[in-house]
Design a protein around this nucleic acid. Structure first.
Lengths: 219, 219
DNA sequence: CAAAAAGTATTGACAGTGTCAAGATATATT
DNA sequence: AATATATCTTGACACTGTCAATACTTTTTG
């Protein structure tokens, strides 16, 4: 092949011209080895660090240290990459709410639901960009199968928690009520559409209580 | 000036070469006359007709029949144009809910609030793109003063309606609860994040009832 | 009424984007 | 060891938002 020979020549020539061998060796290998995973992680990082309108496919590739077209092999489009990131978001989301539900001292169904609601609000607050992605704030995102599946898992989780409180029959509409409340508040918060004089912490606790109150049977 | 003379020359030449005079005359005047308003209307049209990711400043200019940089004179950026469109959306929104509140047969505060809630859901359903703009779905949008003002008007309207039902003191958190519910449901609907087996119409009525139920004092 | 000023729209350029096709390079298979 | 496959890069394309320079119109002014 003569390739290795060529390499030796280049190295020798480099040494002659004063270029340090380390400068030639510390270049990344051509094959990254784990680029798909890397792109997902880098994308998440970028979403957390810079304004969402500045997050581009090329920027993610740049941060990952690969060429601008490298992602094409793993993600058919920019929307697909974002969709997969959103899917991972939903998985982390489900996990977080599950932990919150299990770790609370409250042993009642109502207590667990409130704990989940609180965890929901905290998750949205802590991961605004990913949360926005999960719920369609970013128009460039594609709805991937992975993402649909993950979001449905989140729905099931919530419906079960609601069923524990008010029974299977009323669970679907109850879950819709609960999700709408916390999701609506999270969006309004993220978009700064709330009146400034509102004290958030108290308002959030109030809202969760009203939400549970809404689940109770009518007199 | 010689300009009018030149025009006569051109017309004469055009006639000689067989170009119809009408083709020369039916060109739009250089000054549009009402371009700012036109761009807003055209933008709303575009948002209603084509996918939101395809709505660009240049596309709006194209539809308005002007050059790609013409909007610059009226809107500092694409975000500003979208922001103004959102502001108009809020104004129409407030008007719609006001009408719904006044036109309902129900004479109770609860009846009026339910009518507004229903009108809210219908508005979001009928104007998905504009509604998305209003609540920050589009990352390219700027938050213009006009828009902040209009959105605050919407908030006041809602808070008043809630105050009629549960009093001034509890109105702020009550309004937050109400808005979160209907906004959350609207977003979940628009983003198709709801389980497919849900029958929407009934679910919406259920949700509005639960929402009102949540406003009632705790036993 | 003519000249200057101000307002309005166009043209052309720039850096940036997502996507695609063709080529280069590394690993796996035979 | 030669071939095949997987992976990454390069270069191009059409598009975007924004800006500066220019052309055209209307209004104001002298």
């Amino acid at each position: 092949m003569g390739l290795k020979t060529l390499k030796r020549w280049v190295l020798a020539f480099a040494r002659q011209t004063g270029i340090g061998e380390s400068e030639l060796n510390d270049k990344r290998p051509y094959h990254h080895g784990n680029l798909r995973e890397q792109l997902l992680r880098t994308g998440e990082e970028a979403l957390a660090e810079i304004p969402i309108e500045d997050v581009s496919l090329r920027e993610i590739a740049r941060r990952a240290g690969v060429s601008h077209a490298a992602p094409k092999h793993y993600f058919a489009s920019m929307g697909d990459l974002l969709g997969e990131i959103a899917a991972r978001g939903f998985q982390k989301f489900v996990q977080t709410l599950d932990e919150a539900s299990r770790k609370t001292n409250q042993q009642t169904a109502e207590g667990r639901l409130l704990a989940m609601g609180w965890a929901y609000l905290r998750f949205a607050e802590a991961n605004p960009a990913i949360y926005g992605l999960m719920f369609g704030k970013v128009d460039r995102m594609a709805v991937t199968p992975n993402m649909v599946q993950s979001s449905m898992a989140a729905w099931s989780q919530l419906e079960n928690a609601v069923a524990d409180l008010i029974g299977q029959a009323r669970a679907p509409s109850g879950a819709l009520h609960v999700w709408s409340s916390v999701h609506g508040l999270s969006m309004l918060k993220a978009e700064r559409r709330l009146p400034p004089q509102l004290t958030l912490h108290a308002a959030e606790e109030n809202l969760l209580r009203m939400m549970v109150q809404g689940l109770s049977e009518r007199p």
